[in-house]
Design a protein around this nucleic acid. Structure first.
Length: 589
RNA sequence: GGAGUCUUAGCUCAAUUGGUUAGAGCGCCGCCCUGUCACGGCGGAGGUUGCGGGUUCGAGCCCCGUAGACUCCGCCA
């Protein structure tokens, strides 16, 4: 037995008893005579003191200890010399006076210190196993465990069954690029790693499981980001005989349980709801951050009779004039205003107009085109006051929303509006569009995925080919401007599913070869069903306050998808390729 | 594929804007130190300033190229 106690366990009440501890040498304070060691394990620190007058031999060995040596000590729990207690340590009233010291392993000179935050992420990922000893990372991983534990417990209580679905699965044309796995037994064919267990979970519903969940690994071969890794985890849920409200209630309960377990807070439920159209109109985003106001305001009524060319042209062409009021931002720098203008152009606006309200005056080249009535109406509609900055754009509705939505977020960042905020703003965004036209491919794509159910009243729009207007029975759950989950009620009728495939340009033959099993399954009594998938990594990021998804995963890849620790991906033997019937291009050999 | 920021000792950073031998703290090595808790003191080792080229009497600093890291766009729910 290596230990009788953990590193944060010993208290004044243990004084006089013996204890055995094992862990890492966190700090050595060597006074030449007496030597102090802070012994660290996963739970905390305990001071170990070696006194030459009590045990010269052990103290001699203690002199040789270095950072991160692994040791085991056994001895007497003693009160600290009065006045030397350390109130910042849970075990600060006591110290261990060892009778034995066993060096279990010595550590080399460290690549970086354990007790500070190195900014060199390259180095951290190369020595990830060592990086994990740092409290900030181990805290995140333990919090992640609390979250998955709370999830499993909650869903179990609700009667859900955790079922594993295949990792070796089938490539599908929709969505992200697949990771492919060559098949040795069927040379020339490939499995694909699942982008999500979407089809399997629907087939489990056909199988009568009714309530399924899985903490599921998902794989997408796309470029990485601060919040995106090629493999990530979803809390995947599917249930039969449900409507959106059933899913909302289930997820609200689950998030409440998660936040109770992980943060000790009660979150208010039910969450507010916005339709996609409302979210886009008011916030210019399908995942609005509502921790600050700065609403997108439609000014069509204010400028209904305006002759100002920029506004007139947009309104006459069926577009909009919209503005946001950035409170107290009139004093922005030239650099900031240039950046915002460049941003507006980048997202397709013809321009971005500013009004600064300073010293009781509206400073803008635009103001001279406004009538007194327009100016008054504008001021009251936007609640514009001294020190504010009003930003305008006049354009097609989609462009104006997108541009102002992006600018709204960038200004919030510039003004540090959410910095240090403890707010937890949850909401549902509902009624997403069913399909979106892809100009590059010249075809309609599913916004969510091809199994998403159109809203009942919009099925005629699908029939009539009015794809752009059809809304889906699809929903996202958003926390503080981050989409943490999304789902839909699915299609369970083979005819409607075939109709959707046809709309998406999947011909009869491809439907049979790629989706034949699911269409056949729907003919054997598929229950109405729907579900949701929650992005576990992003949720953990938000709960931990981590800036990167890499901070909440034990062994993440870097920006280019490389594992710097194990050097994957890597080349393989010619023989392995031969077994698979593969050969490489000359340039990749 | 594109844009931006960055790259100086094992780590975190500095170098008066082109000027002598590139410094500091931590870490490491040695010596000293019996109540510290970021212990303290003295000394020491440690650098191809990412790499290649250019301008210059002189480059860590300016220019060109290149590699890598990170962030964003495209891509991806």
């Amino acid at each position: 037995m290596y230990r009788t106690h953990d590193g944060n366990e010993l208290r004044a009440t243990d004084i006089g008893s013996t204890a055995k501890l094992a862990g890492w040498v966190h700090v050595r304070r060597d006074h030449g005579g007496v030597v102090f060691i802070d012994l660290r394990d996963r739970e905390g620190l305990t001071q170990v003191v070696f006194r030459p007058e009590e045990n010269a031999e052990l103290t001699g060995v203690a002199h040789t200890l270095r950072h991160e040596d692994v040791i085991e000590v056994e001895g007497r729990v003693a009160a600290r010399v009065p006045g030397t207690e350390n109130p910042r340590l849970a075990t600060g009233d006591v110290e261990l006076v060892p009778q034995t010291l066993r060096i279990l392993n010595r550590a080399d000179v460290l690549p970086f210190p354990v007790d500070s935050d190195p900014s060199n992420e390259d180095l951290r990922l190369t020595y990830r196993y060592f990086d994990l000893r740092r409290p900030s990372i181990s805290r995140n991983l333990r919090l992640r465990h609390r979250i998955t534990k709370a999830t499993r417990d909650y869903l179990d209580e609700q009667g859900f069954v955790e079922i594993e679905t295949p990792i070796l699965s089938k490539s599908t044309p929709e969505g992200a690029r697949d990771f492919l796995v060559p098949s040795r037994l069927t040379p020339g064919k490939f499995y694909a790693l699942p982008q999500a267990p979407q089809q399997y979970k629907q087939l489990l519903m056909v199988g009568g499981i009714e309530k399924y969940f899985q903490i599921a690994k998902c794989f997408r071969d796309e470029d990485l980001r601060a919040d995106r890794q090629p493999e990530f985890t979803q809390i995947d849920i599917e249930a039969s005989f449900v409507e959106p409200n059933d899913i909302f209630q289930l997820v609200e309960g689950m998030l409440a349980a998660i936040f109770r377990a992980a943060r000790g807070v009660e979150i208010p439920t039910p969450f507010p709801r916005l339709t996609y159209a409302e979210a886009m109109d008011q916030f210019g985003s399908d995942k609005p951050d509502r921790r600050f106001q700065m609403y997108l305001t439609d000014l069509a009524d204010v400028f209904a009779t305006s002759s100002f060319k920029m506004f007139r042209g947009a309104l006459d062409a069926g577009g909009v004039v919209k503005a946001i009021n950035a409170k107290n931002f009139a004093a922005l720098t030239v650099g900031q205003s240039n950046e915002l203008t460049a941003m507006a152009k980048h997202y397709g606006a013809k321009g971005l107009a500013f009004i600064k309200i300073e010293n009781g005056e509206w400073k803008s080249p635009l103001v001279k085109f406004f009538t007194a009535e327009e100016k008054a109406a504008l001021g009251s509609k936007l609640q514009a006051e001294e020190g504010d900055l009003v930003l305008f754009t006049a354009d097609k509705r989609e462009i104006a929303n997108e541009v102002l939505g992006r600018i709204r977020l960038r200004i919030a960042e510039m003004q540090k509006l959410t910095e240090g905020s403890e707010a937890l703003d949850f909401l549902w965004v509902t009624d997403f569009p069913l399909m979106a036209f892809d100009a590059a491919e010249n075809k309609w794509n599913a916004v969510h995925h091809p199994f998403t159910r159109p809203k009942a009243e919009d099925v005629p729009l699908v029939d009539s080919g009015d794809f752009g207007k059809a809304r889906a029975e699809a929903y996202d759950v958003v926390l503080n401007g981050v989409e943490i989950g999304g789902g839909s009620i699915r299609i369970h009728e083979p005819d409607l599913q075939a109709k959707m495939f046809a709309a998406l340009g999947v011909n009869e033959e491809d439907q049979q070869s790629m989706f034949g099993h699911i269409l056949r399954a729907f003919r054997l009594g598929a229950p109405p069903h729907g579900g949701i998938a929650m992005g576990l990594d992003r949720m953990v990021m938000l709960i931990c306050g981590a800036a990167s998804i890499r901070e909440v995963m034990a062994f993440p890849k870097n920006n280019r998808g490389l594992d710097l620790m194990s050097h994957s991906p890597s080349g393989v033997d010619a023989r392995q390729l031969r077994d698979l019937g593969l050969s490489l291009d000359k340039k990749h050999e």
